[in-house]
Amino acid sequence: MAFNLFGNDAINSPDELADRRALIRALVARQLNQPTRNMWDGANKLVGAISSRVAQGQLDQAGIDGKARAETSFAPLIEALRKKQAPDAGTVASVLANPWVNPGQRSIAKALYKQQLNRT
């Protein structure tokens, strides 16, 4: 069983990932700015540093997974374009609905969506 600081594994968007990274940074900064009064405070800081590194690793993995999901949703659209076919509306909608796609991918999907609207 893996430790998860946030209680759930679902990070649904890059904005949520950035918010969680900011939370980790704030928690670490607060802890490091507290003066060490005794041995137990030192041990507490050590545990805090280790757990923040674990949380950062989890957030890094969540970012990698989100980008992989974006590539997976964008791949059928690229495949259709390579075959010089119009992608179906579901594929375009899937790309537009995915918050992890990058701006370039999103602009391609928007252009294809507008083309589909003009055809009907």
Score class of each variant (00 low, 15 high):
G63I: 01
D60Y: 11
L77Q: 09
E71A: 15
L59H: 03
A62Y: 04
S73A: 11
G57F: 09
P87G: 01
S51G: 06
A68E: 09
I50A: 07
R69E: 13
P76Y: 07
V54T: 13
G66K: 02
F74T: 02
G63L: 03
E79F: 15
K67H: 14
I64S: 09
D65W: 04
P76I: 07
D60A: 13
K83V: 07
R53S: 11
Q61A: 09
R69V: 03
R53M: 06
L77D: 02
L77E: 02
L81S: 12
E79L: 14
Q85N: 14
Q56V: 06
K83R: 13
G90Q: 14
S73F: 01
T72Q: 04
R69F: 05
K67A: 08
S52V: 13
Q56R: 15
L59G: 01
A86Y: 10
D88K: 06
E71Q: 09
S52C: 12
Q58K: 07
Q56C: 03
K84M: 11
K83N: 15
S73L: 00
E71W: 03
T91E: 02
K84I: 15
A80I: 08
D88P: 00
G57E: 03
D88Q: 01
L59F: 07
A55W: 06
A68Q: 11
R69D: 02
E79M: 11
L59S: 10
D65V: 00
A75F: 03
A70F: 01
E71T: 12
V54Y: 08
V54P: 00
R53F: 10
I78H: 07
G66T: 02
L77R: 01
A62I: 06
T91V: 12
S51A: 14
D65P: 05
A89P: 00
K67C: 00
A89R: 09
A55K: 14
Q61W: 09
A70K: 00
G90M: 01
K83G: 07
L77C: 03
S52M: 15
S51R: 12
L59N: 09
